[in-house]
């Protein structure tokens, strides 16, 4: 096993453990926003898409790179914006009780 691969596997295992630990019991009203927030984070895939677009040298690879960049950037931009909109209902000082109850029904 190369040093690079070992490093990557170690990073993977540690990140999985952090992922398990960082979420403990969360209220049901936050389930959907949390899902959406996590969805936005895996939008990091756009980073990989940008990097492969630089390697592309022929039409087939241009096509694949374009698909990856387009889909990845939809994921990252849409993910963060829609999560932020979902969470506006929690940040209003007066209303959160009522509105968060509505959010839980969805």
């Amino acid at each position: 096993m190369s040093q690079e691969l070992y490093t990557n596997v170690a990073i993977f295992v540690m990140s999985v453990l952090v992922g398990f630990e960082v979420i403990s019991k969360i209220p049901a009203t936050l389930h959907t926003p949390m899902m959406s927030g996590a969805n936005a984070i895996h939008g990091a895939v756009v980073i990989g898409a940008i990097l492969i677009a630089l390697e592309a040298q022929s039409p087939l690879f241009y096509g694949l790179a374009f698909i990856a960049v387009f889909l990845g950037s939809v994921n990252v931009a849409g993910g963060y914006v829609v999560t932020d909109r979902m969470l506006t209902m929690f940040s209003k000082p007066k209303k959160p009780k009522n509105e968060s109850d509505d959010g839980g029904d969805k």
Partner: peptide, 16 residues
């Protein structure tokens, strides 16, 4: 960057 973000979401998403 991809390994960390992906693994984090994979694990957190499972708990969720």
């Amino acid at each position: 960057a991809l390994i960390i973000a992906g693994a984090l979401v994979g694990a957190a998403g499972t708990i969720l």
